[in-house]
Nucleic acid binder design. Structure first.
Length: 271
DNA sequence: AGAGGTACCTGGCAGC
DNA sequence: TGCTGCCAGGTACCTC
């Protein structure tokens, strides 16, 4: 999926088009996502005005006075602004129409994403209640990470990808951040010194911030709110570079599988 | 409570 | 050209 930088890029891309706009019509061509799109979504949102467009973890939140529209892009989802007259393609499952010129279109070939609506306080919503801290805030620091890490013995890569600890870090940026911090992806969380957690937290923040500046990473099909790709893939140091040489020490980059996901690392730079 | 595996779904690609 | 098998940015839910 879209990881945090891609969701943030989408959020920033669509926000200026949507703030202050009123939902007029919602066209659902295929409601079968991770969970079915609520059948009464149109009735709930009709004539409601968008007062904020935010991101929490990898969720996009479009808030009105009464409701929050929750959108998750899953593995292959994109959201972009288009002309409502543009004919929908095969995987364009939902259109949110705001006036004759603005259409927010949701596309998702694999349909692992989700579109939900709630009038609940999000801090009490089941999808949000257990979420960990945002990595780009001061709540995410070496103390926090170390406190949660020292009592566990799982691989550090799986640990930083656990959204109940810290949100938004997916498979690409987990590999990239560990490379930057010089930590081997299989190293057990309780066998890493606190000083290395300091390095890791700053590496995670650096990687995510740089990716946001580049507009995210486009590997296959990700596009931002204006239907343009992101350019961070050109800056990836290890992800997808198995067999190539490490930019620091020229050692061959390795690929292993951890928890059914590929990890990429430099066996010399990362211990 | 924590860890690990499974399921959801489609498309692209390598290999035959 | 066409088939098969594998891989892919996520995460809730199940079992142990």
């Amino acid at each position: 999926m879209p990881e945090l930088p891609e969701v943030e890029t989408t959020c920033r891309g669509i926000r200026p088009h949507l703030l202050g706009k009123t939902f007029q019509q919602i066209i659902v061509r295929n409601a079968k996502l991770r969970w079915p799109i609520p059948q009464d979504i149109h009735q709930q949102l009709h004539n409601e005005k968008i007062i904020s467009v935010e991101r929490r973890a990898k969720y996009l939140l479009l808030k009105t006075k009464m409701h929050t529209l929750i959108i998750h892009l899953g593995m292959s989802g994109s959201l972009y602004i288009t002309d409502p007259n543009t004919p929908p393609e095969k995987h364009d499952h939902v259109d949110f129409l705001f006036n004759k010129k603005i259409c927010l279109r949701y596309t998702d070939p694999r349909r692992f994403g989700a579109i939900l609506i709630t009038d609940q306080d999000l801090t009490k919503h089941p999808l949000f209640i257990k979420l960990g801290v945002e990595p780009l805030t001061s709540d995410f620091n070496a103390d926090y990470l170390y406190q949660h890490a020292k009592s566990r013995g799982i691989a550090i890569k799986n640990f930083i990808m656990n959204s109940h600890i810290v949100t938004g870090i997916g498979n690409i940026y987990a590999s990239e951040a560990l490379f930057l911090a010089g930590i081997h992806p299989t190293r057990a969380t309780n066998r890493i010194a606190k000083s290395r957690y300091t390095k890791l937290t700053s590496a995670i923040k650096t990687v995510l911030e740089k990716a946001i500046l580049a507009g995210g990473t486009t590997l296959r099909d990700f596009v931002n709110g204006e239907k343009k790709p992101g350019y961070f893939s050109q800056q990836l140091q290890v992800y997808g570079r198995e067999g190539e040489t490490c930019g620091h020490c020229k050692t061959i980059i390795k690929k292993i599988v951890q928890g059914q996901r590929s990890s990429f690392y430099c066996p010399r730079c990362q211990r």
